[in-house]
């Protein structure tokens, strides 16, 4: 088991390094391909070519990509000093870069936005897990019946309808027409729990609907497959109650693929739910990335991308560990 964990940690670390290299490479290439000089973005449109060149030199943007990456990597681990001319700024580790538009390092920017994204993702996850799995189980148990068919049609709709449609519709109905839910700004959980929940509720439900649909379908398919297994027949042959057969023996097998998907979904969401955050005006990481793209704030875009990748790699790692806990064949194999 220790061996297994060490191997997974190493794999994840290497994966992260490769991702950071590729991402950095892409962000190095993009301005070149677009025919713009990144230094122009910092000095503003009115700057003379000499100013641009000077800034580029100061920021190290004239250096080869390998050198730039080495500096970036050092910043991630140990922090770095940035010299943009008028002043020198220290960017503490982990330094994901420095946003000149916001005049702040990227890392605190991300940290500021993280609670919102976490609130949204976790709340939605609870809803979709409960709803999706329950719907899937019920559907599978009532296979072919009217309930099953209705749920599967709903699930199909849930998967197919985009967030900006369901989200905007919900917003229109519950916030603007019925006034059941408040509009306005996001509030912190610590400051006003009720306001926090009220503001997030529609986001949770909208996001959960999208995922719950997929989970319901997966759960149903997995259950139907498991119910036909020989070991389920064995469980019945032992004289177990039907609810034990389903709740323990069937669910145990159904959970395994769900854990994998769930880990990856949550990992992906923590990197920012761009559409949902935009639709509901939630200042999370997704919004941060949209704003950064709009203002061509490349360091932030790079930071958000890497941050998101980090979550996915981390989620993958946790899923692998969980898998070993759930499936003894993985642990010992």
């Amino acid at each position: 088991m220790t061996h297994y964990i060490i191997r997974r940690v190493l794999t994840s670390a290497v994966l992260m390094i490769i991702i950071s290299m590729v991402t950095f490479g892409v962000f190095f290439m993009v301005p070149k391909l677009a025919g713009t000089n990144p230094a122009e973005l910092y000095v503003g449109k009115q700057a003379t070519p000499a100013d641009v060149a000077a800034t580029a030199r100061k920021l190290g943007l004239d250096q080869p990509v390998t050198v730039q990456y080495a500096r970036f990597a050092k910043g991630l681990v140990a922090g770095r000093d940035l010299d943009d001319g008028p002043n020198r700024t220290h960017c503490a580790a982990p330094c994901f870069g420095y946003s000149f538009r916001n005049d702040r390092p990227v890392w605190p920017l991300l940290l500021d936005r993280l609670p919102v994204t976490v609130s949204l993702a976790v709340g939605a996850a609870v809803l979709w897990l409960a709803g999706g799995v329950l719907a899937g189980v019920v559907s599978a148990l009532r296979r072919g019946g009217p309930l099953d068919r209705t749920m599967m049609v709903l699930a199909l709709a849930g998967v197919s309808l985009p967030v900006y449609f369901t989200g905007l519709l919900a917003q229109l109905v519950f916030v603007h027409t019925l006034h059941w839910l408040p509009g306005g700004e996001y509030v912190n959980l610590a400051d006003d729990p009720a306001g926090w929940a009220a503001k997030l509720l529609l986001g949770w439900v909208t996001l959960a609907l999208l995922y719950a649909a997929a989970y319901a379908r997966l759960t149903r398919a997995q259950m139907l497959e498991t119910v036909g297994e020989d070991y389920i027949r064995t469980a019945r042959a032992k004289g177990l109650r039907e609810r034990t057969v389903i709740g323990k023996h069937v669910m145990r097998s159904v959970l395994t693929p769900l854990v994998t998907i769930f880990g990856l979904d949550i990992g992906g969401l923590l990197g920012g739910a761009i559409l949902t955050e935009s639709v509901f005006g939630l200042p999370g990481i997704g919004r941060l990335s949209i704003d950064a793209v709009n203002t061509k704030d490349l360091p932030v875009v790079l930071g958000v991308t890497l941050f998101g990748a980090l979550f996915i790699v981390l989620a993958n790692f946790i899923v692998d560990l969980l898998y070993a806990v759930i499936d003894p064949r993985v642990r010992l194999g």
């Binding site: 297994e229 020989d230 070991y231 027949r233 064995t234 469980a235 019945r236 042959a237 032992k238 004289g239 177990l240 109650r241 023996h249 145990r252 097998s253 395994t256 759930i326 499936d327 003894p328 064949r329």
Partner: peptide, 25 residues
């Protein structure tokens, strides 16, 4: 019948690999 199953009448199946739950000891 469930109460009798496994107590008064029990069954051995053909393929013991698929007939036992892989995740439980």
């Amino acid at each position: 019948v469930r109460r009798l199953r496994g107590r008064k009448m029990a069954m051995i199946f053909q393929d013991p690999l698929t007939a036992m739950h892989p995740y439980f000891t």
